[in-house]
Amino acid sequence: MSKITSLADLKKKRDELKGGLDIRVKAIDPDSVVQVKVAMATCGIASGAKTVMEFFLEQLERRNIAAIVTQTGCMGYCYAEPTIEVKLPGQDPVVYGFVDLKRADQIIEKYIKTGELVDGIIPVNYQTIDFKE
């Protein structure tokens, strides 16, 4: 543990350490940041979902985009794995299929940064059932 001897030291230290709490800070209001869910069932993993997830974790951070990347189970589109769901703040989620690293890059550059849709969208084919009366 290094000693802190000035305010400048302390500020530097804070900026270094901030990243460690990032996940928790973003979780306070998850709807204000980009949310990426990577389907990570057997089918997804077999088609490379793990690499895709690592790519998103690493690249979103490197490109300074505030985002939450989580994994989920099988979305049912096993033919189109790896599949991911991207939810931009205040918008409906969009599901992309056949996401390799090239498409993942496109999704970040085009969809996440500018909102422009890219190839590979799986149209919404379900309805959420609301149990409330």
Binding site: S6, K11, L17
Partner: peptide, 25 residues
Amino acid sequence: FINPENIDEYIARDGYQALGKVLSE
């Protein structure tokens, strides 16, 4: 929200900034 046994997490949440400012400015 933070681990109370880890000063790093307190510093990451702007901990000791006020003391630092008070002492130096």
